[in-house]
C-alpha cells in the first residue's frame, strides 16, 4: 500500500535520528581511541590515574549484592501478592507501588543523616540498602504482574500433587518465569550501576569505596579539559551496561516502558 518514496522517507527519518542518538557516544569512543591512529594510551592513563580498577570492583560488588537480594525479596513478595489471598494484600501492593513514584531527591537528605547516625555512611552496605529498597519497589510490581499472569491451572495442578506453596514457587513458577525475572535483573543492575546521587552523598569521604560513576565525576573534576583521558574514563564507566544492553535490548525496553515510573 505504501509508495517507494514514502518508504525511503521513513528510512531517512529513522536513520537521521539513529545517527543523532549514537553521535555523542561514537564521538567519545573516537576521541578515547585517538582515531584514526588507534591508541589505547588514554585508557591506560585514565585507568591508572582514575583508580578505575578499584571503582569498577566496588560497583560490581554493589550491583551483585543489590541484584541478588532485591530479586529474591521481590520474587517472594510478588509471589504472595500475586497468587495468594490474605487480608491487606492489595494495600501492601499499593504501598510498594508508591515507592516507584518516590524520587531519590526526596529521600537522599534524610537518608544521609539516618545512615550517619547508625554508622553506615561511607560503607558499601549503606549504599546497597537504600538501592535494594528502591529496587524492591519495582521488583514487587514486576513480579506480581508475572505471577498474576501465570496460568492458574499450573499452580492448581502443582497443589493437587500435594506441593507446598514453596515447592510450587521453586519447581514450577520460577523456571517458567525466567524471562520476566531476567528483565527485572537487567533493569535493577542498570539502575544500580548508573546511580550517582546516592553514591555522591553516601560515599562523601571514603575514597576507597567510590563507585565507577562517582569515580568518573571526581576524575572529571581533576581533568577538566583533558578530553582524551576523560572520554576514555567515560567509556570505561558506560561500556558494561551498553554491552549487556546490546544483547538484551528487548528486556531493557520492555521493562523501562512498562509504565513503571522509575528511571
Amino acid at each position: 500500500m505504501t509508495s517507494r518514496a514514502e518508504r525511503l522517507a521513513t528510512y531517512g527519518v529513522l536513520s537521521l535520528f539513529a545517527v543523532i542518538a549514537v553521535f555523542p557516544l561514537l564521538a567519545v569512543a573516537a576521541q578515547a581511541l585517538a582515531l584514526p591512529h588507534l591508541s589505547f594510551g588514554a585508557f591506560t592513563a585514565a585507568w591508572r590515574q582514575g583508580h578505575f580498577a578499584r571503582y569498577l570492583t566496588n560497583s560490581l560488588i554493589v550491583v551483585t549484592v543489590v541484584v541478588v537480594v532485591a530479586s529474591v525479596l521481590s520474587i517472594l513478595a510478588g509471589y504472595a501478592l500475586g497468587t495468594m489471598d490474605f487480608r491487606g494484600a492489595t494495600t501492601l501492593f499499593y504501598v510498594f507501588l508508591a515507592g516507584l513514584m518516590v524520587p531519590t531527591e526526596a529521600i537522599v537528605v534524610p537518608l544521609y543523616f539516618d545512615l550517619r547516625s547508625v554508622g553506615l555512611d561511607n560503607t558499601l552496605p549503606g549504599l546497597m540498602l537504600p538501592q535494594i529498597a528502591q529496587s524492591v519497589s519495582f521488583g514487587v510490581f514486576w513480579m506480581r504482574a508475572y505471577f498474576r499472569s501465570a496460568p492458574r491451572s499450573l499452580i492448581e495442578a502443582s497443589r493437587m500433587d500435594g506441593a507446598s506453596s514453596w515447592t510450587t514457587l521453586r519447581r514450577v513458577l520460577i523456571p517458567v518465569g525466567r524471562p520476566a525475572i531476567l528483565t527485572m535483573v537487567v533493569l535493577i543492575a542498570m539502575w544500580t550501576w548508573n546511580e550517582f546521587l546516592l553514591a555522591l552523598v553516601i560515599m562523601n569521604s571514603n575514597e576507597d569505596r567510590r563507585t565507577a560513576p562517582l569515580g568518573l565525576s571526581i576524575f572529571q573534576g581533576q581533568h577538566q579539559t583533558e578530553y582524551q583521558p576523560l572520554m576514555a574514563a567515560a567509556l570505561i564507566v558506560a561500556a558494561p551496561v551498553v554491552l549487556v544492553y546490546v544483547f538484551l535490548q528487548r528486556h531493557f525496553i520492555a521493562g523501562m516502558l512498562s509504565g513503571a515510573v522509575k528511571e
Binding site: 537480594v69 525479596l73 521481590s74 517472594l76 513478595a77 509471589y79 504472595a80 501478592l81 495468594m84 489471598d85 490474605f86 494484600a89 501492601l92 504501598v95 510498594f96 515507592g99 518516590v102 526526596a106 529521600i107 537528605v109 534524610p110 537518608l111 543523616f113 539516618d114 540498602l129 537504600p130 535494594i132 529498597a133 528502591q134 524492591v136 519497589s137 521488583g139 514487587v140 506453596s165
Partner: peptide, 26 residues
C-alpha cells in the same frame, strides 16, 4: 493465605526502613 505475610515480610522490612522511613523523616 496466612503464609503470604511470611513471603512479603523480608521485602517489606527493607523497603520500610530504607525508603518509607526516609520519606517520612524527610
Amino acid at each position: 493465605r496466612r503464609i503470604g505475610y511470611l513471603y512479603v515480610l523480608p521485602a517489606l522490612v527493607i523497603y520500610a526502613l530504607f525508603l518509607l522511613w526516609p520519606l517520612l523523616h524527610g
